[in-house]
Nucleic acid binder design. Structure first.
Length: 138
DNA sequence: GCCAACGTTGGC
DNA sequence: GCCAACGTTGGC
C-alpha cells in the first residue's frame, strides 16, 4: 500500500464536501508530474487531504477506492482520475507550519515542491502527521 | 532548441 | 498585495 497527499483549495473542493458526498472523482489534474503520481495510485492506498490557500493544513485521511483510469473526455490527452472516499477527519488539523517544524518531515515534496498538487509521501511521513493530529490543540 | 513573456499556484 | 517557482506559449 502506498501513501499520498492530495492538495485542494477548500473554496473549490473541501473536505466537508467530500465528507458530505461520501465519494468523489479526483479529476481536473492538469500537471504532468501530478498526473504521473495519479497514475500510480491503486485501490486501497491512503492519502492525506490538504487544504491549500488560507488554511494550509492537513484536515483528513481518505482512501483510494478506484485506481487511475482515463478522464472522460480527456482520453486523447492522457489525463487520468482516481476515485476517493473520506476515511476520517483528523482530530486536529496539522498545519503547514507544524509540518515544517518537524525535522523528519522536512524533505516532504509538500515543502520542497510547493506547487505540486498530487504527491507521494512515505509511511513514516503519513503516520508522523497522523500522530501530530492527535497531539495538537485546536 | 532557446528564451522572453505571460499565466498560475501557493505561501508569506 | 506581493513574490517565488514553475509551466506554457510563441517568436525566432
Amino acid at each position: 500500500m502506498n501513501y499520498w497527499l492530495l492538495k485542494t483549495e477548500p473554496e473549490t473542493f473541501s473536505w466537508a464536501t467530500l465528507a458530505n458526498d461520501g465519494h468523489t472523482v479526483w479529476d481536473g489534474v492538469r500537471n504532468y508530474q501530478a498526473r504521473n503520481f495519479l497514475r500510480q495510485m491503486k485501490e486501497g492506498d491512503k492519502a492525506l487531504f490538504y487544504h491549500s490557500g488560507k488554511e494550509k493544513q492537513v484536515v483528513g485521511i481518505c482512501s483510494i477506492v478506484k485506481g487511475s483510469y482515463p478522464e472522460k473526455g480527456q482520453e486523447a490527452n492522457n489525463w487520468v482520475v482516481v476515485e476517493i472516499v473520506p476515511d476520517q477527519l483528523l482530530e486536529n488539523p496539522v498545519t503547514l507550519k507544524s509540518i515544517k517544524s518537524v525535522p523528519v518531515l522536512s524533505e516532504m515534496l509538500l515543502i520542497r515542491h510547493t506547487r505540486l498538487s498530487v504527491m507521494p509521501i512515505s509511511s513514516l511521513e503519513f503516520y508522523t502527521i497522523v500522530e501530530l493530529s492527535k497531539k495538537q490543540k485546536p
